[in-house]
């Protein structure tokens, strides 16, 4: 009898021992896993910081050589080691502007179509098709722009524009020059097609947050579809739509491959939007591997740094706006 108790007691001890061991293992693996996830989060933060620091560090030689004059100088001469960022910055801003002028109305129009007009059964397929447009790699847009769009523009669109605006004072300089096909206008147009899906899908998503009651009230008052969209849906979702537009703008500013193909890579500022130009990203893509000399490389890195800061600000504003519409939805 006594034997049995002792045996039982020993088994009990053994059991508890095992239990304790399992618990310790659980606790250790738990803590380890938690720490792993935490370091991954820190890594994401460090990534952004790292990009900033690395680019800032790389652009020190150029900044020392040119100072703030870098931003207002148009000269870009690798032979004499004189570099200025004005032409790429100008090209980036103008192509993105053209892209937004086309993509914003078209994107919002498509979103209205998708949420108000489209038959229910077609909504999903068309929405998916527009999102697939966003999945196509940018190099494909570039290839298409160079071989299909540019010749078409050169043959049909640009001569028309030149003769149409040739006699009007201001517009004649804007649309001056021989039709090259490639150039700032074509680049802006390709960019517009690229950012269109972003603007469309975000606008559609925010339009869907409008409470049906509001729209029904509008229709109940006898409003037309357009009036409901214009005076109920758009004002309600204004912040979100602007967020989507800014997201598209961020994409357009930083887009590289599509632009590099069709912009023409000329480091000068031309009054005409038919002329070739360059953008920040196109300059980097074209010249970085061929850049000889530290100053040349550093100037290109400084261009990249400027681009990163600009897109960072634009994207931060975009996120802020989209957050506000999300909060509105939550209330």
């Amino acid at each position: 009898m006594a034997d049995l108790t002792i045996n039982n007691y020993a088994m009990q001890l053994d059991k508890e021992h095992k239990r304790a061991r399992v618990f310790t293992r659980f606790r250790l693996s738990d803590g380890f896993f938690r720490r792993c996830t935490f370091s991954a989060v820190m890594l994401v933060l460090a990534l952004l910081g790292g990009v900033m620091i690395a680019l800032a560090y790389g652009s020190i030689p150029a900044f020392q050589a040119f100072g703030l004059g870098f931003f207002v100088t148009e000269v870009w001469n690798p032979v004499t080691d004189k570099f200025g960022a004005l032409a790429p910055i100008y090209g980036t801003v103008v192509t993105s502007l053209i892209a937004m002028l086309i993509a914003v109305p078209v994107g919002i129009g498509s979103a209205i179509f998708l949420t108000e007009l489209c038959p229910q059964s077609l909504r999903r397929p068309i929405g998916v098709a527009i999102e697939l447009l966003a999945a196509i790699p940018s190099i494909i847009y570039g290839l298409w722009g160079l071989f299909i769009l540019a010749p078409f523009v050169q043959q049909y669109v640009q001569p028309g524009l030149i003769s149409l605006f040739g006699d009007i004072p201001v517009l004649s300089t804007l649309f001056a020059g021989p039709p090259y096909g490639i150039g700032i206008l074509t680049a802006g147009f390709v960019l517009a097609i690229m950012v269109l899906p972003f603007i469309t899908s975000i606008s559609r998503d925010v339009f869907e947050t409008v409470p049906p009651v509001l729209k029904e009230a509008g229709y109940g008052l006898g409003c037309t579809t357009w009036e409901v969209s214009r005076h109920v849906v758009l004002p309600y979702t204004g912040v979100g739509v602007i967020g989507g537009i800014m997201l598209g703008l961020g994409r357009a500013l930083g887009e590289t491959m599509a632009v590099t193909f069709v912009i023409g890579n000329a480091h000068r500022i031309s009054g005409s939007i038919l002329a070739p130009g360059t953008t920040i990203s196109a300059s980097i893509a074209n010249e970085f591997t061929e850049a000889v000399g530290d100053l040349y490389t550093s100037a290109l890195i400084e261009l990249g740094f400027i681009l990163f800061i600009i897109t960072f600000i634009v994207l931060a504003i975009s996120r802020y706006m989209l957050l506000r519409i999300e909060q509105k939805k939550g209330v």
Partner: peptide, 9 residues
């Protein structure tokens, strides 16, 4: 922001 940051950077 990283999701939409320019890939060339």
């Amino acid at each position: 922001i990283l999701l939409s940051a320019p890939s060339i950077v």
